Amino acid sequence: MGATNTSGKWGDFAIRTGSAVLLVPVVIALAWLGGAWFALLLAVFGVLMALEWVRLVNGKPDLIQQGLHGAAAAAVPWLVLAKLPGTAFAFIALAWVASLLWLLSRRHGQARAALIGLPYIALPVLSLALLRADATHGLSALLWLMIVVWSADTGAYLVGRLVGGPKLAPQISPGKTWSGLVGAVTGAALAGGLLGRVMDLPAIPPLVALAGLLAVIAQLGDLFESHLKRQAGVKDSGKLIPGHGGILDRVDGLIAVALGVLAIGVLRSGTNNIAAALLLW
């Protein structure tokens, strides 16, 4: 994930840890409660991500684009809660078309990058909402996924700073190293396997492999947002979370992973069984 740097290699460690200690229990509690509570969490996060995204790629606020992106992200979890996943996909598609028409009418090249934001913001929200909506495996799948992503982030941060070494993509994100990528994959794989044991899931080796793959996807999501920030000439997508920057800085890896999970779920079993498709191999 992107992070605001302070002095020294470990200068941001305390403030990052403090932010995580405050945020993680809230996220887990709302995920545990599910229903309207988790839908509200996703809607709020979706709107905040939409505001940051448009401002990041556009260089300034655009009320029409922010409204379209925010409306799609906020509506999707409630449509899933109402057991209307097909309507959620249709709503995203309609918002995407409206966004396209608005951008074409403006004929502004940079503004068109905001078009990517609808699938980038709304589809991960849809993925997480569908994951939690599964009455049998939803909570387990969601907790497994979040802990795997957090473990990948932690592994990348700690190993990258302890070991250092060759840069992963210096022109995009100078702070990222190959050792950090190894730490991310290792942390995610260990967490995925251990959680599989704790949850008494039937096939642990595929879960370990899947967790390692998702760690790579999370790192790619981080690099994608770093590329956008470099193009925009900014260090962070926002200033909402101390030590992390904006919402997008904190969840860039989760966004990419959620897109991957949505693809896995749809390909394996359709939109009604994404949780089982993730956990049961």
Score class of each variant (00 low, 15 high):
Q110H: 12
L267S: 15
G117H: 02
W78Q: 06
S127M: 10
A75M: 10
P170C: 06
I255Q: 01
L158H: 02
L128T: 11
R161A: 14
I264S: 03
G59S: 07
L279W: 12
L214S: 03
D222N: 08
V44K: 06
G175W: 11
L254R: 00
P77S: 13
L100M: 10
L143T: 10
A152E: 00
G35E: 11
V27D: 04
G70D: 07
A232C: 13
G243R: 07
L240M: 13
L280C: 14
F224M: 14
G212E: 04
V198L: 15
E52Q: 05
R161G: 15
V149N: 02
G246A: 08
V182C: 02
G196Q: 12
L158D: 05
I172T: 15
A14C: 06
V27F: 08
F224L: 13
G180C: 06
L220E: 00
L42R: 09
W96F: 08
P202N: 09
G233Y: 07
A93L: 11
L79N: 03
Q171G: 15
D249G: 12
P119Q: 11
L195V: 13
G109S: 15
L42S: 11
Q65E: 06
L103V: 10
G46S: 10
A232F: 10
H69T: 05
Q66I: 01
G270N: 07
K235T: 08
L123Q: 06
A218M: 02
A31P: 02
G35D: 13
V24P: 05
L118S: 10
S127Q: 09
K167G: 04
I247C: 06
L94I: 07
R106Q: 14
G86R: 05
A203E: 15
K239I: 05
R16T: 06
S19C: 10
T271K: 02
I172P: 07
I217C: 02
A36F: 03
L123E: 03
G34M: 11
S151V: 01
M49T: 10
A209Q: 07
I264K: 05
L254Q: 00
I255C: 03
A88R: 01
P85E: 10
K176N: 11
G34H: 05
M49F: 04
L279R: 12
L126C: 12
L23V: 12
R268P: 04
L115H: 08
S7P: 00
A95E: 00
L158R: 02
W10F: 13
G18A: 13
A75G: 12
A129D: 12
F91Y: 04
Q231I: 09
R106N: 13
M49N: 11
L40S: 15
A3Y: 12
D222V: 11
T17G: 14
A215I: 01
G196H: 05
E225M: 11
L220N: 00
F13P: 01
V208L: 11
D134I: 14
G233A: 12
S173T: 09
N273G: 09
A276Y: 07
A111Y: 00
S105I: 05
V208E: 08
P85M: 10
